[in-house]
Amino acid sequence: EHQTACDSYWTSVHPEYWTKRHVWEWLQFCCDQYKLDTNCISFCNFNISGLQLCSMTQEEFVEAAGLCGEYLYFILQNIRTQG
């Protein structure tokens, strides 16, 4: 039997508790949902936990993801305040 992915999907966990996999799933979702250019995102810069992600500043997001960084930063802040 296969496990259902939704059990541990990033949407069901507060961002501060995300694993590295959750972070990448979220990035992929943002790219799909908001039509962000994946080429401007250095995924290696996001090989981090949710706690590390949440402690990043807006400037660090821009450094890590170029033009997309600002969008990603605000998307994350939205999730954190709603969560």
Results as ranks from 00 to 15, higher is better:
56 M>D: 00
21 R>Q: 15
70 E>S: 09
29 F>Y: 15
14 H>S: 11
34 Y>F: 10
42 S>L: 08
27 L>G: 02
64 A>T: 08
2 H>A: 12
78 N>Q: 13
22 H>C: 04
31 C>Q: 01
45 N>Y: 09
1 E>C: 09
35 K>V: 07
83 G>P: 12
25 E>V: 05
79 I>S: 06
52 Q>K: 09
51 L>W: 08
53 L>W: 00
26 W>V: 01
54 C>A: 05
39 N>D: 09
59 E>T: 09
78 N>F: 06
26 W>T: 03
21 R>H: 13
31 C>Y: 02
58 Q>K: 14
38 T>D: 06
62 V>A: 07
64 A>Q: 07
1 E>I: 15
26 W>D: 00
71 Y>R: 15
24 W>K: 14
40 C>D: 11
37 D>P: 07
73 Y>I: 01
2 H>Y: 09
59 E>H: 12
48 I>D: 00
39 N>K: 11
35 K>Q: 13
38 T>G: 08
26 W>S: 00
46 F>M: 06
74 F>D: 15
33 Q>F: 06
61 F>V: 02
1 E>T: 09
38 T>Q: 12
77 Q>F: 04
2 H>I: 15
76 L>H: 04
56 M>H: 03
43 F>I: 11
79 I>H: 10
52 Q>N: 06
18 W>G: 01
21 R>S: 07
20 K>A: 08
83 G>S: 12
81 T>D: 10
17 Y>F: 08
77 Q>A: 08
75 I>D: 15
30 C>L: 05
26 W>N: 06
20 K>P: 08
14 H>L: 09
55 S>V: 05
2 H>V: 07
54 C>E: 02
49 S>F: 04
71 Y>W: 09
67 L>E: 15
76 L>Q: 02
41 I>K: 04
55 S>T: 09
33 Q>A: 11
54 C>P: 03
38 T>R: 14
37 D>V: 00
1 E>Q: 01
21 R>K: 11
64 A>S: 13
49 S>R: 05
72 L>W: 02
47 N>M: 08
57 T>E: 12
47 N>H: 09
17 Y>C: 12
71 Y>F: 10
33 Q>D: 11
70 E>L: 05
34 Y>C: 04
54 C>T: 04
33 Q>R: 14
28 Q>A: 06
37 D>Y: 00
36 L>V: 04
53 L>F: 03
72 L>F: 03
2 H>E: 07
82 Q>Y: 10
13 V>L: 11
51 L>D: 12
26 W>F: 10
19 T>R: 01
40 C>Q: 15
5 A>N: 14
26 W>I: 13
69 G>P: 04
38 T>L: 12
59 E>A: 10
49 S>V: 06
80 R>C: 07
71 Y>C: 14
80 R>H: 04
57 T>A: 07
27 L>W: 00
61 F>A: 02
79 I>E: 07
33 Q>T: 14
38 T>C: 08
17 Y>M: 15
56 M>R: 03
43 F>C: 07
67 L>F: 11
22 H>E: 12
47 N>Y: 09
63 E>F: 02
46 F>N: 04
55 S>A: 14
16 E>I: 15
24 W>N: 14
14 H>C: 07
22 H>T: 05
74 F>N: 15
60 E>F: 03
40 C>I: 06
77 Q>L: 08
62 V>M: 07
34 Y>A: 06
41 I>F: 11
64 A>Y: 08
73 Y>S: 00
70 E>G: 08
36 L>M: 13
73 Y>E: 02
43 F>M: 11
71 Y>V: 13
38 T>K: 15
47 N>A: 08
61 F>Y: 01
37 D>R: 06
20 K>Q: 07
15 P>S: 02
29 F>V: 05
58 Q>L: 12
81 T>M: 11
53 L>D: 05
40 C>E: 14
81 T>E: 13
74 F>T: 15
56 M>L: 09
48 I>T: 03
64 A>R: 13
28 Q>V: 08
53 L>I: 01
15 P>A: 03
61 F>P: 03
49 S>G: 06
57 T>F: 03
59 E>F: 07
57 T>M: 05
45 N>A: 14
22 H>N: 15
42 S>E: 11
82 Q>S: 11
23 V>Q: 04
71 Y>H: 15
5 A>G: 11
55 S>G: 10
36 L>H: 07
25 E>A: 13
16 E>Y: 12
76 L>K: 00
58 Q>I: 09
76 L>G: 03
82 Q>F: 09
45 N>T: 11
54 C>D: 04
25 E>W: 05
77 Q>S: 07
64 A>L: 07
79 I>R: 11
68 C>R: 07
49 S>W: 00
83 G>C: 12
55 S>H: 10
80 R>F: 01
75 I>W: 08
26 W>G: 01
72 L>A: 02
72 L>I: 03
30 C>H: 02
73 Y>G: 02
63 E>S: 10
40 C>L: 12
56 M>F: 05
17 Y>K: 13
50 G>S: 03
53 L>S: 01
61 F>H: 00
18 W>C: 05
79 I>L: 13
65 A>H: 05
72 L>Y: 00
31 C>F: 06
16 E>H: 14
63 E>R: 09
42 S>T: 09
79 I>C: 09
62 V>Y: 07
37 D>M: 01
63 E>Y: 01
70 E>I: 05
80 R>T: 06
51 L>E: 14
28 Q>Y: 08
58 Q>N: 03
77 Q>I: 04
39 N>S: 13
35 K>C: 13
